[in-house]
Write a protein that binds this DNA or RNA. Structure first.
Length: 256
DNA sequence: GTTGAGCGTT
């Protein structure tokens, strides 16, 4: 929740969200508030935190009341050294201000870049290369961590891929009948989530790793077959003589 | 205790 979320999201109608990146993990909204508030009226500041650790993710969202102020803040605070780190301030793609744009796209409210629009487009057309911030932009830090995050992604991808390995066969066969349904079920988010949690699906694993654990067929459970198959035939085919003699305790009991 | 591309909730 934002620092100003006295009662949830404020009733802001026209606010512009700024995305602050490259900030230290210790930087909090309180630290950014005075900085951004100095350049304009900050309506709200939100810093997403990790659910597991609860630590800041290294970026924050600052909502400004006016676009000009936000733009100024971007130009002023972008690259400002905070806690020993240079924070990058840029307009957020998502947010209340962006929502309007999205809606505009769906609706016909979006002004077409014919000629008049060209006159005003500070947000998108905003460029500041003359400052030469490219030097520090992105900086040298951009290697290593990516692997950690990508690794998780790859793992997930592989896991899912393997799961599908069993699908191709059925997919091809049944795909013609109803590919939509088959695919829908396969890509069900719920199923994927459950699988990930359990890590292993009993049904899938059974089919996949059964060979090794599967007991010899000749020693199958007699009781099971008894129920499944005809007892009469089984009896005749199994040579009851030997079995009776060997297994029947009744035969030996009286003898002793 | 660490990390460093990105896009948001309570």
């Amino acid at each position: 929740m934002s620092r100003f979320g006295r009662s949830g999201p404020p009733p802001i109608r026209d606010t512009y969200s700024l995305l602050v990146l490259n900030i230290t993990f210790r930087t909090t909204a309180d630290d950014l508030f005075p900085l951004f508030d100095k350049y304009g009226e900050v309506v709200d500041i939100y810093i997403p935190r990790d659910r597991r650790t609860g630590d800041s993710r290294g970026f924050a969202f600052v909502r400004y009341k006016y676009e000009d102020e936000a733009q100024k803040a971007v130009d002023r605070l972008d690259g400002r050294l905070v806690d020993g780190r240079e924070m990058m301030v840029q307009f957020a793609k998502y947010g209340p201000n962006a929502e309007r744009i999205q809606k505009g796209r769906i609706m016909e409210t979006v002004p077409k870049p014919r000629g008049r629009s060209r006159s005003r487009s500070p947000r998108r057309g905003y460029r500041d290369d003359h400052r030469g911030r490219d030097s520090r932009r992105r900086s040298r830090s951009r290697s290593g961590d990516r692997y950690g995050r990508d690794r998780y992604r790859e793992r997930d991808h592989h896991r899912r891929s393997r799961s599908r390995s069993t699908s191709p066969d059925d997919y091809k066969r049944r795909g013609r009948d109803s590919p939509s349904r088959s695919r829908s079920r396969s890509y069900s988010p719920d199923d994927d989530r459950k699988g990930g949690r359990d890590s292993l699906s009993p049904a899938r694993r059974s089919t996949s790793r059964s060979p090794r654990k599967t007991p010899p067929p000749r020693e199958g459970s007699p009781a099971k077959r008894n129920d499944d198959r005809s007892p009469v035939r089984r009896n005749d085919d199994r040579s009851p003589v030997r079995r009776n003699d060997d297994r029947s305790p009744d035969s030996r009991s009286p003898s002793t």
